[in-house]
Design a protein around this nucleic acid. Sequence first.
DNA 1: AAGACGAAAGTGGTTGA
DNA 2: TCAACAACTTTCGTCTT
Length: 310
Amino acid sequence: MSEGSEGPQEPAEERCPPDKIVYDESRGQYVCTETGEVIEERVVDQGPEWRAFTSDEESRRARAGSPLSPMIHDGGLTSVIDWRDKDATGKKLEMKKRLEAMRWRKWQLRTRIQSSVDRNITQAAVELERIADQLGLPKSIKEEAVSIYRRAIERGIVRGRSVEAVAAAALYIACRIHRIPRLLDEIAEVTKADKKEISRCYRMLVKELEIRVPPTDSADYVPRIVSALGLSGRVAKKAVELLEEAKKLGITAGKDPTGVAAAAVYAAAQLLGIKRTQKDIAAVVGVTEVTVRNRYRELVKALKLQLPEE
DNA sequence: AAGACGAAAGTGGTTGA
DNA sequence: TCAACAACTTTCGTCTT
């Protein structure tokens, strides 16, 4: 966020004052509270989970091993019981103890190493990690996704479906829940499973696990479009305002939210005298210029927008 | 030459019998 | 399972800048 590293055409007065910038953890974005501008998208949570206020506290909170996280199926805390029938000093164990140790091993093998459930989760976690990294998603999303996947496994829903597809679907749900807009296409892009398969799994997961997925809000896409095109926060703010009004008038119902968002950004830019082509805006959210055009037309008509003279 | 516009026909997904 | 349906896409001709 240093000086001069931003888009070229914005006047200096609308730059965000540094003290107004806030990290919106749920979206993985830095956002200016003044203008709504997204400063840097897709920053992946870098900080420690804890804060330490004194150096004493800091050392106490220093970790042994990696942080606890659902990404590792057992929290990374299990140890494997040695297979030799000796104790730490190398002495042979008595029969009783040997039998006990055998039971332990058996139990452990069954519940941990050989448990297909856990192996499956581990495999899925690796996959989720990869996809999430490629899409620049924050850790909270990954963890949500793993937790969804785990629930699916425990319910035995994954059988007969590809791990890839279910994992991708879980990630998609996590994104929706946290309102970080990622398109199904984007997820499908970095996955072996195709879009159709993923969306089948998505529907299945939502139904079987009774997950409440909030409907996509077109406004959630605005920051993405704006930052992708290097537009200012003023455009974002205006676009969101337009969307608010449009929603009240009910002209957004049943329409693809990405297309609606794209049209709103286009309209906002027009109103502020900033030129961006419909095509460029459409490309960001994966719709065509025709769709942007149609939504735009509806927007202008419904809100009776006064465009700057030609 | 490039963008905006709108009409018309084609496509994939949802819904309801 | 099939047909109707709505929204989106593709394609194309025309107008504007």
